[in-house]
Nucleic acid binder design. Sequence first.
DNA 1: TATATTTACATAAGTACTTATATAAACAAC
DNA 2: GTTGTTTATATAAGTACTTATGTAAATATA
Lengths: 317, 317
Amino acid sequence: MDALREFREISLGSRLNRMSDVMMKETQKVYTYYGIDFDPYLFPAFKIISLKNKTTNTEIRELLNVSQPAITQTLHKLLKKELININSDEIDKRKKIISLSDKGEKLLIKMIPIWNVIHETVEKLTTFPSENLVGHLSQLEDAFSEKSMSERVISNMKSSEHSEITIISFDEKYTEDFYNLNIEWLETFFYVESHDKVVLSNAKSYIIDKGGHIFFAKDGEHIVGTVALIKIEDGIFELSKMAVSPAFRGKKIGQKLMQHCISFSKEQNYTKLILYSNRKLENAIYIYEKYGFKEIPMEKDSPYERSNIKMELPLDS
Amino acid sequence: MDALREFREISLGSRLNRMSDVMMKETQKVYTYYGIDFDPYLFPAFKIISLKNKTTNTEIRELLNVSQPAITQTLHKLLKKELININSDEIDKRKKIISLSDKGEKLLIKMIPIWNVIHETVEKLTTFPSENLVGHLSQLEDAFSEKSMSERVISNMKSSEHSEITIISFDEKYTEDFYNLNIEWLETFFYVESHDKVVLSNAKSYIIDKGGHIFFAKDGEHIVGTVALIKIEDGIFELSKMAVSPAFRGKKIGQKLMQHCISFSKEQNYTKLILYSNRKLENAIYIYEKYGFKEIPMEKDSPYERSNIKMELPLDS
DNA sequence: TATATTTACATAAGTACTTATATAAACAAC
DNA sequence: GTTGTTTATATAAGTACTTATGTAAATATA
């Protein structure tokens, strides 16, 4: 017997509140299980700060539609946990500029895969056709009483840890994934130009039809990474458009894609791979070197504005 | 821009909380508009007390799945508003017996039609096919931002006040309404015997097929009241099974049903209507007298245990 | 029958929000 | 260029929950 269920729409407010409490508490259990000092209610603000890089109290408030003191309080708690930096704006001294601290960045990396699994878990439990909202709520409650949300998330985490990443070839149905992964990567490290959008949304005509290749890293049903081999001339290809989903970074997916490109190129008897990168991406360049790429001089009229290093890998073996 | 919407399932907990807050606040506005001193968060406990007649702290807790101190606190607030009585149980002195006070009963009568409209309003806004829970939530949010929940409820209240009650004849599709309305009535004023359930769930064979009639009061699409004329002998019928939905009491629906029965019987040239009632139902007896019924002696072997008064209305006119 | 355990409810303190209000800087108006 | 208004954030107090714990009666156990 559950009165809030019986009352249906008339007690929806109380029921949403109860459901919210359950989800918050269960998410807390997941963080505790993974030894993460973070509270679920901090998530929306923290997530926005990580996405925006630099933001303000007011901007967060507008995005979340909650009261301004709620944001001030949340920011103070994030500051106490040393997850953010709060600095006064030089120009407008009323404003406080909020950004992730180093500790915050590190915690973010740890939490992203957990958030990803939470998202997938809840998505799976709430995605089914229903004629009304209370029906959806009831099914979610039933699912959680059968096996709690935290248990579900933790067991899904375990299977996602063991899941194999497979590399597959281009298919038009993945055009959107190719676009999203690359745009996300560009937004994170550089800025997106309109030319990027044109190329990325027409991958087939710009890359495949010109003799190039695109590969995807697939985790279960999810496309989590991509890379392209763009044909420069016969036997010479540019390794480009490598991007990995933020939620899956740290799983060596980039290295798997790289290894696949090299093996593939050798099979095809290609003679050389080249790539353009930027010295600020130290980790990436370290990986390139690990796979045998060597720095060569940049041409004066480099095709990429954001690149300041060119590397090559001869494939004579 | 609404970040909680963009984050979808990952921020579902925070979003449910925000939605809950909105609904609670909007419901508060409705109560304030109608000059009712009541808080939305008190609803679940108050509703249970009104349904159960007598209950306890623990029983409410079990029905609502919240913490026990939450119930204790809610009950104290209801007591402070003088809406309930709290008495110690004579047998088990740990227990407190909770029941509605007279003031509570009066407030209940005022709130029932409002609850009814809130239910209908929210039901209408949340009943549509959707593939996932967040889709339902988004649509509800969109609806509320277009026109707030309180505004919707208040304008629906106004149109429901003006809505006409129509009387219709029996149709098998209303068998369940006939059953529910009568059972609710019996539970409120007497107790339900298994024989009642048999008769009420087989209205057609027990009443219609034996030459009787059943009428329903209809408000829009809702069946809100019923009455039966049971054939005793040619031209003599017993007026019985009159019941009105709690949400619609005070709208003279009983009187409309009564008037319809009398007009119908005259049209059919019936000679007499009789009825059995109980002296404790003072209001009902007052109405019967108003429509011309006069008390006559009960037969020794009365067909109803719960009746202690018999009345008749000659229809010679 | 004395003692331990369980049950029913109350109290205390904490939490994550809320509204109302304060403070100080920026901007607008005359 | 002073003054009033707006904007950005902080503080204070209240609320409706929570967990942890207390108290007293009922029940089980030895």
